[in-house]
Simulated assay, not measured.
Amino acid sequence: MSLFLFPFLFSFLVDAQLLSLSQMYGSLQSPNFPEPYPRETQLRWNVSVPDGFHIKLYFSHFDLEPSYLCEYDYVKVEAEGEVLALFCGREETDTEAVPAQQLITSPRNSLSVFFSSDFSNEERYSGFMAHYSAVDVDECSDRSDEDLLCDHFCHNYIGGYYCSCRYGYLLHSDNRTCRVECSDGVFRERSGVLSSVDFPSPYPKSSECLYRIEVEPGFRLRLRFDPLFDVEDHPDVRCPYDHVKIEAGSSEFGPFCGNRSPGEIQTDSNVVTVSFHSDNSGENLGWRITYTATGSQCLVPEIPPNALLNPVQSEYSFKDHILFSCAPGYRLLKDGEYLDHYQMDCRSDGSWSSSPPHCQKTD
């Protein structure tokens, strides 16, 4: 084989070569370094490190044929289809295409270095020597507030990160969202307030909350939503993300979402279930409900002659009591018995516990 053909064969072999580097650090160099590199050569190094790391690359020596826009010989650094750097020339000529002390950082955990030489070199050029190393990514600080990895707290470690939540919250199975357990207990008082967790601050994501209000039979529950109502919605689909639903006996109300308060809801039941669903996104402020129990109405009783009634009201409801007494000179008579006063109770079915007594004149 002639000497004339040998360089051509060598360049063909180098042109077909693809090198993969996967250590945490290493170096790469032009063919024959520090001797002059061959002509008509193309060589690519694919460098990759584990997830959670970036790659930093720098050149400790650089000596390639200079050319306008690096048309002849060059080194190109790429990552994810983007050209990070294009170098050519000699360091002593102080051209803009020389890497000098420039440090190149990959956006992810891989990059490639591509070396190309053309068919001729006017002088002898020694090529290049480059070094790379894996550097830890601080996932917790490398993101904006709009792209947070963790709902509450983010903790970085070498090669990765983990999330934790404030006291009272639980980490969701996605290991980044903080949810709450919010389905315990029953509201039994005749009036009260319930709301989304942390209202009016943003409510937790990925949570299923169930609130039950249960008062004595004979009462009907009335719910009033706070005017400040902010639950994630969708412009085209009704409440596909977050929503509030209300069940009262056989009646259902909702789902409710958006920023318009549902206002007041009067139910015919003494038991109400309020359910709230939130997905894994959004920063909405939530909702609050004030509830009251109103009893069945009893008709205002007929007051017998010479009788006195306490208290005197325009309407009476379940559990209300009234006392009968008589004017001076009269005594209460009920079922053949004289009394100082007599009590009647408004019952759950809207009837009084008995009929009113009579007032009989005394001697």
Score class of each variant (00 low, 15 high):
residue 211 Y to R: 08
residue 110 S to N: 09
residue 288 R to S: 13
residue 116 S to E: 13
residue 64 L to K: 03
residue 296 S to I: 01
residue 172 H to M: 09
residue 155 H to Y: 06
residue 261 S to A: 04
residue 260 R to K: 10
residue 197 V to A: 07
residue 208 E to T: 03
residue 54 H to P: 03
residue 250 S to M: 14
residue 320 D to N: 15
residue 32 N to W: 01
residue 87 F to I: 10
residue 286 G to M: 02
residue 50 P to L: 02
residue 15 D to R: 13
residue 108 R to P: 00
residue 95 T to D: 05
residue 83 V to E: 08
residue 183 S to T: 11
residue 184 D to M: 06
residue 301 P to K: 14
residue 251 S to M: 12
residue 70 C to R: 08
residue 77 V to C: 06
residue 184 D to Q: 14
residue 118 D to S: 08
residue 201 S to L: 14
residue 32 N to A: 08
residue 171 L to E: 08
residue 264 E to G: 09
residue 212 R to D: 06
residue 179 R to C: 02
residue 288 R to E: 14
residue 230 D to M: 03
residue 277 H to K: 05
residue 304 P to A: 09
residue 106 S to T: 00
residue 206 S to V: 07
residue 244 V to H: 01
residue 117 S to N: 09
residue 230 D to T: 08
residue 26 G to V: 10
residue 100 A to K: 12
residue 360 Q to D: 05
residue 173 S to C: 03
residue 87 F to Y: 15
residue 347 R to L: 14
residue 363 D to F: 06
residue 322 I to L: 08
residue 175 N to S: 15
residue 280 N to T: 07
residue 360 Q to M: 04
residue 259 N to H: 05
residue 322 I to C: 05
residue 291 Y to V: 02
residue 103 L to R: 13
residue 134 A to E: 01
residue 302 E to Q: 11
residue 139 E to I: 04
residue 210 L to S: 14
residue 251 S to P: 01
residue 198 D to H: 15
residue 134 A to K: 05
residue 18 L to V: 15
residue 169 Y to I: 00
residue 337 E to R: 10
residue 335 D to H: 11
residue 130 A to F: 08
residue 183 S to A: 10
residue 304 P to W: 03
residue 290 T to P: 02
residue 228 L to S: 11
residue 132 Y to D: 10
residue 64 L to E: 01
residue 17 Q to V: 07
residue 145 D to C: 11
residue 250 S to P: 03
residue 49 V to R: 11
residue 91 E to G: 04
residue 148 L to K: 15
residue 111 L to R: 08
residue 28 L to G: 05
residue 218 G to Q: 08
residue 23 Q to C: 02
residue 25 Y to K: 04
residue 229 F to H: 01
residue 344 M to P: 03
residue 254 G to Y: 04
residue 150 C to A: 07
residue 197 V to T: 15
residue 119 F to Q: 13
residue 291 Y to N: 01
residue 361 K to P: 04
residue 93 T to Q: 12
residue 142 D to N: 14
residue 51 D to Y: 10
residue 85 A to I: 00
residue 117 S to T: 01
residue 142 D to F: 00
residue 224 R to C: 10
